[in-house]
Design a binder for these strands. Sequence first.
RNA 1: GGAGAGGUCGCAUAGUGGCCUAGUGCGUCGGUUUGCUAAACCGAUAUACGGUUGAAAAGCUGUAUCCAGGGUUCGAAUCCCUGCCUCUCCGCCA
Length: 415
Amino acid sequence: MLDIKFIRENTEIVKASIKNRNLKLDIQEVLDLDSERRKILVEVEGLKAEKNAISKKGKPDKTIIDEMKALSQKVGNLDIKVDEIDRKLGNLLLYIPNTVHNSIPIGSPENNIEIRKYGEPKKFDFKPKTHIEIGEDLDILDFPRSSKISGSGFCLFKGLGALLERALINFMLDLHTREHGYKEIFPPFLVNRASMTGTGQLPKLEEDMYKLKDDDLFLIPTAEVPVTNIHRDDILDESELPVCYTAYTACFRREAGSYGKDTKGLMRVHQFDKVELVKFVKPETSFDELEKLLNNAEKVLQRLGLVYRVVMLSTGDISFAASKCYDIEAWAPGVEKNLEVSSCSNFTDFQARRANIKYRGKDKKLEYVHTLNGSGVAMARTVICILENYQQQDGSVVIPEVLRPYMGGRERITK
RNA sequence: GGAGAGGUCGCAUAGUGGCCUAGUGCGUCGGUUUGCUAAACCGAUAUACGGUUGAAAAGCUGUAUCCAGGGUUCGAAUCCCUGCCUCUCCGCCA
């Protein structure tokens, strides 16, 4: 969330940011509540000072007791008003998006900028099949049965398909822990409301989340939630920063409102595996750290020999909590699409404020950290890319070299 | 799920209605002493939100915070209620 003081003193920046995101959100109510709140505070704090002064004198006589009763009454009424305003204000603040960084393009998704491309799309001497055909032919993906078990939007990996999934997870975790210096985390997959609010999924996106009504718990949409919340309400020491975590989790998304979109196969599923990267950094380093994070995610695709492009999202396409964000899209020749396999964002102090994550600097002052995260990378769509890029005319799929050690030295997936 | 104990300043602990704007010890920081280090001694030691002075750095000042939220009272760390969390034991269990 944004600092109310920042909104008060930089109203135009906040308004411009909202406008550039193509959102209709009026912050006037926030400003009005803020000034009303401060007005009442002056009054009520004066009365409380009076009350405290009398209280401190010890046992009062009858007339003073009557005086205090009246005073308490007044204070009580004003306190109720302040509480009401606080609640309203706090709630409104949770719906104000992060300010966008001035390096990103203004506009809608068409204004996204392609930053770079990696690799050349493979030329096939035959018409490449989709992952759905490949997976069913090899009996490693079974969509009829996943819908029988769970419904549409789920997948069932079998045999070498399941092993491929597991190999990818291990390969990615090993890469990030051994070569990129991240610490491995295995977090809970169910989190409470405070955690979901801390990273910004709640309250705005509640309908997109899977929820356990009886326990007020949510299935995580990404490891970002539990991993960022590791340090909720923590004060980190400057010397520990940057803190870098990587975690595998399953991710659960209702995808409310996206019915009919990419419904076939693995492109958009309610449950998928992902290896996530999360960083807590000093504010002045966060935009450099974003570039590093992006490079770490790209490395996964490079090692897998996939073709991809990096896109910088425009103000109209960037997520609620992010200030700057890159998407990585890998080429899938079967479905003939660039698939988003990673999204790397700098949240500046937006999440840190919500989750109350600070650090103590050399001058002993407390400051909010900046948080970042990115997929490193998302499994389901990466599996699509591997199957479709590495398919052979005979129907088999060559296993990318880096994965072979994780698959018992096997070189191909065959029937 | 049942029974019990507990949650106080970075840590440890004191505090059972006004002397608590929370004591003490440890730790940390600054200083004195010292050839250096240690010890000893002296001092400091939270956060949030307001108000105010100032160009700024910063200062002064008020309020709140003893897990959280309610309640009793002129007055709550202290009494009552609810919730959350931790620990011990029992039950169940991969």
